[in-house]
Amino acid sequence: MSRQAIGYGLLLALMLVAPTVVYPVLVMKVLCFALFACAFNLLIGYTGLLSFGHAVFLGTAGYVAGHSIKVWGFPPELGLIFAALAAAALGWLIGSLAIRRSGIYFAMITLALSQMMYFFFLQAPFTGGEDGLQDVPRGKLLGVIDLTDDYNLYYFVLAIFVFAFWLIHRTIHSPFGQVLKAIRENEARAISLGYDVAKYKLLAFVLSAGLAGLAGATKTLVFRFATLTDAHWHTSGEVVLMTLLGGMGTVFGPVVGAATIVTLQNELADKVGSLVTVIMGAIFVVCVLAFRRGIVGELSALYKKMTGSR
């Protein structure tokens, strides 16, 4: 067994016992945002695309899941799949517009389009406007397992997370992932080698949007509501921060970043009120100025240095 496999095994064991120590809903929130950040990292870390409107997929899927489960009576598993597909479809629409420009414009376009969807959700009748979509039932998984129990739901959420994490891991290490990295490193060369760069970017975008949607739908199931906050640009900024803080382009970075930020917000919310935004902004500034590799990136650089110098 490789050292990596042992590491993964240990982490999984830790996650299995986590809800006995920590409040399960908090861990589920961390898992949802970790999945969201991992999906985002697939774009920024492995394709070099900064999407500044990723919250739109989280929010859209939240509403789709909530509406299909609550109003149409979908079972939870079907609601999640349907919501993820809806987010992927929206990702296809937004992605095919945004990839027409690159670099800084790409970020501005994704931000603008997500703001457009935000205004749409604000006015659309099915979202409940400022109040959000309330009282979404958790239902029974496959008609058998009662998800109203926090522990049952926790293991379901963990299974979703592990599946998505595995999918992202496979994607990164597949030939498709190699092409994405080639685009990140040198787009012109990737084109000259005959790769249809636009198609690869779009596929990565759709995959990322779908997984972000899965995170949003799961979040709705956990909290039993979908709100406008999830689609707001603040949330888009948050996922950027999580990924930046954890380490862009590292496998575990987004998970570490999400756990840190969610815990921090949870701790600080009562103590400092609206100053949380200031602290988030300060972390942004510090990360960009002094800490660009993020927590995981810095640690692995340190590890390499120590083992290398020995």
């Binding site: 900024g237 902004g281 942004f284």
Partner: peptide, 12 residues
Amino acid sequence: LLTFGLALILEG
């Protein structure tokens, strides 16, 4: 990203 952080600080 840096100026986004600054915007958050000012607004907050």
